[in-house]
Every structure is written in C-alpha cells, then in structure tokens.
Design a protein around this nucleic acid. Structure first.
Length: 536
RNA sequence: GGGCCUGUAGCUCAGUCAGGUAGAGCGUCGGACUUUUAAUCCGAUGGUCGCGGGUUCGAACCCCGUCAGGCCCGCCA
C-alpha cells in the first residue's frame, strides 16, 4: 500500500471527516523542500478522499512570524523590521530594500511577495489548498479563545514545555508575545495579564497593553502550533523531521493542545530534500532551487512523482542533472504500464505484489488532477534532449518523431515538454553527459589503438564524407558504405569508428542529423586530421 | 548527556508494523536487430541485509549491545 494510503487508513479508523494541514513561514524564497511539505499533505488528502473520507486540505501561511534577521537578499533598511511580523512589513524591491509604495497603496507585504510565486507553482502542480493567513487569523480573533486558555494556564504550559523539551524557560516567560512599541515581537517583557490584555514594557522605554483578541501579538511557536490545530480543527499534519524529534515542537504540542481542549493530529514526519552535491537546502547558502525553477525543467507530474515514490522518512536528493533524466524515464516507463493487468496475475509473490501496488499508488499521486489518467508520451527524455539539441525548430523535432513512427501527432503535452527541455538545455543544470559534443581535436588515444580494419574504415569514412552531398540521407548512406571495401563482419564497426573519431565515444545518437547541423567543412577537417594520425 | 530517523546488489530503494527459500528499477555484461532513438527486444551478472550477541524449529524483520551518517532537545519553521 502506498504511504499516503496507509495514513489515510489510520485516519479512517478515527473519523470520516478530516482536516489535513500544512504550514510554511514565508520568510524568503520558497524552495523545492517546501514542496515536500505541501505535496505530502496533498497526497494524504487525496488518499483520504479516495478512501471515501471528507477532507478539508488547508495551507496555513505563517505570516504572523517575525523577520529573524536581515537576510543576504535584503537591503540594510530591513534592520528596522527585525522582529516584526512578515505579514506586516513591506516586500523587498529588486534592490532588496522595502517597496513602500506597494505596501501603502496595495498593502503588498513581505509575506505576499514570497508567497505569490509559490502559489502559482502549486496551482500548476495541481495543489489548491484552502489558504489560512495566520496574521489575519490573529487579528480577527480566531486565536482569542485558545490564547485565553494558554494565558490563564501559563504555569501548566510552562511546566509542559520544560518537562518535555528538557529546557528551562527564562524568568518572566509568558505564553503570549506582545507587539512592542515598534511593532516587534522581541525586546519586550510581559508585566501583567488581565484578559484580554497583556501588559508589557519594551527596551525602548515604552509600555502598553496587548489585546490578545485583536492580534496585538502572537502565541510563541510552541503554543501557536497546537492553538492552530485547535481552532482550525486539524486532524492530520505532515511536518519536517526537525519538529518530529523527541522534545521537539510536536512532542510539546501534543500535550499543550490537550490543555487547550483539543486532540493532537495524526502526525507524519518527513525528511528533507537536498540538492545533489550541495547539501541541505538553505536560502542563505544560495543552494536552492525553487519550485518555479524546477517546473521550468520538468513537468509537474514528474515533480509529484519524485515526492510520491519516496516514503516520507527517506531523504530525497534532488538532482537537476542526470538524475532528472533517470526520473523522467522512470516516469515514462511507469506511465506505460498496466498495473491492473499485472496484478491480475495469480502467481505473484507477496513481495512482487507490494511492489506493483506501490508503483501504481505513486503514479496515482503523480497526476496533476486527481483520478486523471497519465498517458505515456512514448518519447523519452533522452531522445527529446537529443532532438532538441540537433533541431533548431520545433517543427523539425516533430517531423523526425513522426517519420520514425514514434508519435502520430503533436499533443500539447509534447509541446509543453519540448519547451521545458529547451529551457533545461540552455540552463546550467543540463548534464554534460547529455550534451551533444563533436570533438575539436582528433581522438588520439582511440586512433592509435585502431586495428588494421578500423584504420581502413576511418580512411574510407573520411573519403566518403568529403565527397558526399551534405544532407541527412547521403550522410546516412555514406557511413555504412565505408566498410564495403573492408572485409569485416559487421557494419556496426563503421559506426563505432565514426563515433570514436567524431564524438570520442563508442556509441551515440543518430549521427547524420547532427553532422548536418555541424557542417561538412568542420567534420572533414576533423577526419583528415584523424587520418593523419594514422600515418604517423 | 537524552531522544528520533537512516544503514539491504555498483546506484536508487522495496521488503521490517503481522518472523517462513533475499526483491524491483537503473547500471554492467552477452545476444538479436544489414541506416543507431545513447532506442527496442531477449538473456545473464550481481547482496556475509552495517557489525556482535540473544529469542526461535526458523531472524533483513523481534530483543540487547555496538559502529557509521543525519536530525532534534537553542522561539527554530
């Protein structure tokens, strides 16, 4: 059974209506790691619906969280906003400094700025959760009731956090962080509490009262999370392994939520996604790839497959090079399979059956629209990468595929894939192994090791190509013709020699169309130089 | 120090919850194919299940210990 179905089954045992929640702080550029948060939730929600449950899938935007520091991508003017809430400060402009105009005129905030492109990417991936803005929720009093309980029972909450996390909270700690005189959540001390007011004093010498029904402050994270479970009614949430550790925020949250009068949600801990060869993703280290960037390279189904096929507790290495080719080709293979037919085979061992079911489950989760059928395009990534590199026009790519009988007509899906492929090829992510590369210097090592026959073939190829008309058909005929005068068993050898001398490898893509693009002169020059090496 | 996760074929991982002859894909190698889609098809190759004990008729799986990697216990989502 697919992991999402396992969780859905656990939910089904509890109730037939559920709220599956996800949450992210919009503190900077979203990256593909955040996609796991959302997609894990989405897949659980989808599986639960498939199991006949009624599901509300929500995405809580943690816009009430403060700006932690002036990140590298921010200008120095952001110093004044450190500690202020992300949904209450202006978005950065190109130069990294605050865009006051948009903030004043449209209330365009820091949180909006980073959230918007992510939501756009989500839509393309087929994820459309109900959005809950956390700052708005505070301001409109959604947290009021539970904040009151937290403040009334501050001692119990304090005891819980200290006992479960094993860390000591400072004197004067209070389960409500009021906004100070400058709108920040730090540099402020709670001096008293009479519902609904929390009295405070800040380091600027000001004092005041924070009304917790109006969002003039927020609950600290370890209480904020369980309070959200409470008022939203969350019954299931997937979260990163950082929250999941003993003493982490889930283990305190599950006790605190009971103090607040609710039950903890069904947890599911997931591992991080890292970029291959670059370690864990971190915005400040600059080693991120955003969901938007990733979508330019691969179709959404393949991105979904990446998450769907890995169990949540497995770390994923996202590889924008050869790994992407492997992943895309795996997708095509899976799309071409008929799982129902495979499962109808009675002789399957339990193990084989599980494997087929998991593959089928992963593909079900990979579709952008739930329940939609994925059709194999019959064109592998490798093949398309090759065509896209050798044909400058899309028309030429399609006619090649049509004449070889791979496709009948050009579907929007194929056009879409070709567009992404062209983007990938001109990006820095495209792997060198895939790049069509004609040698500029003769392949000395290979040529010196040539047998008598191979040497003869090389001479012959050089002759044939310099005299043939420079088009695909003639070149195609010229290469096998080059062995006619040489007594060898297989014409395969002609190709081997050609590939070694022109591309430096034993096998390769169809030569003719590439050679046409490169031009006769250059090729002849290379071959003549190679022949000279033979004489030496 | 305390805790969680991970360790199975060259690579990526299933299989561990319900113990019953070690699995898949990729890769590699061989064969087929008289224009090569780095294609396709067929076949083969491949593992002391991190290590050591214990329980059991039987352990990748349960228990104890141990090694290695990652993470958390710092308001940090």
């Amino acid at each position: 059974m697919h992991w999402a179905d396992v969780t859905a089954q656990a939910l089904a045992h509890k109730s037939d209506t559920h709220v599956v929640s996800t949450g992210i702080t919009p503190s900077g550029e979203f990256h593909i790691g955040h996609l796991r948060e959302i997609l894990t939730g989405d897949m659980i929600a989808r599986a639960a619906e498939n199991a006949g449950l009624k599901v509300d899938f929500v995405f809580i935007i943690d816009s009430a969280d403060p700006l932690r520091k002036v990140y590298d991508f921010l200008g120095p003017e952001y110093e004044q906003f450190v500690g202020n809430q992300l949904g209450a400060i202006p978005a950065p402009k190109e130069d990294g400094n605050p865009d006051w105009d948009r903030f004043k005129n449209e209330n365009w905030t820091y949180a909006n700025h980073f959230l918007e492109p992510f939501l756009k990417a989500l839509k393309e991936i087929g994820v459309e959760p109900r959005l809950i803005d956390n700052l708005d929720s505070y301001r409109s009093g959604r947290f009021a009731e539970l904040s009151k309980i937290a403040c009334d029972r501050a001692d119990e909450i304090r005891e819980t956090i200290e006992r479960v996390s094993g860390r000591e909270l400072p004197d004067g700690w209070f389960p409500w962080s009021p906004l100070n005189s400058r709108g920040g959540l730090d540099k402020v001390r709670v001096t008293g509490y009479e519902y609904p007011l929390v009295h405070w004093e800040d380091e600027y010498g000001e004092s005041g009262s924070s009304d917790l029904t109006k969002g003039e402050g927020k609950l600290p994270w370890r209480i904020d999370w369980p309070a959200k479970w409470g008022w939203v009614g969350v019954t299931c949430e997937a979260f990163g392994k950082d929250h999941g550790a003993a003493g982490g925020s889930y283990s305190t949250g599950r006790e605190i939520v009971k103090i607040l009068g609710h039950e903890p949600p069904q947890p599911l801990v997931y591992e991080w996604i890292s970029l291959r060869g670059k370690g864990a993703m971190s915005s400040s280290a600059g080693n991120t790839i955003g969901p938007i960037e990733a979508l330019r390279l691969v179709p959404p189904q393949i991105l979904r497959l990446l998450i769907a096929k890995s169990k949540p507790n497995k770390a994923i290495e996202f590889d924008t090079g050869m790994g992407l080719v492997t992943l895309a080709d795996e997708f095509e293979r899976l799309a071409a399979r008929n799982f129902e037919q495979e499962l109808s085979n009675e002789d399957l061992s339990r193990r084989q059956k599980v494997q087929i079911e998991d593959a089928a489950g992963a593909m079900k989760m990979a579709t952008v629209v739930s329940g939609q059928n994925i059709e194999a395009t019959a064109v592998t990534f490798r093949h398309l990468a090759l065509l896209a590199q050798t044909k400058s026009s899309d028309e030429a790519v399609w006619s090649s595929l049509q004449s070889s009988g791979v496709i009948e007509s050009v579907t929007p899906q194929l056009q879409d894939r070709l567009n992404r492929m062209r983007y990938w090829i001109q990006s820095t992510h495209f792997p060198v192994e895939m790049r069509v590369n004609i040698l500029t210097q003769p392949n000395k090592a290979a040529i010196q090791g040539f047998s008598k026959e191979e040497a003869a073939i090389l001479r012959s190829i050089s002759h044939e190509l310099s005299t043939c008309e420079w088009n695909k058909r003639e070149i195609n005929a010229a290469i096998p013709r080059s062995i006619e005068s040489v007594p060898v068993a297989h014409k395969w050898l002609a190709y081997k020699v050609a590939y070694l001398c022109l591309m430096g490898m034993e096998k390769g893509p169809r030569l003719a169309p590439i050679l046409v693009e490169i031009g006769q002169q250059k090729i002849i020059k290379l071959l003549e130089a190679s022949v000279e090496l033979l004489e030496a």
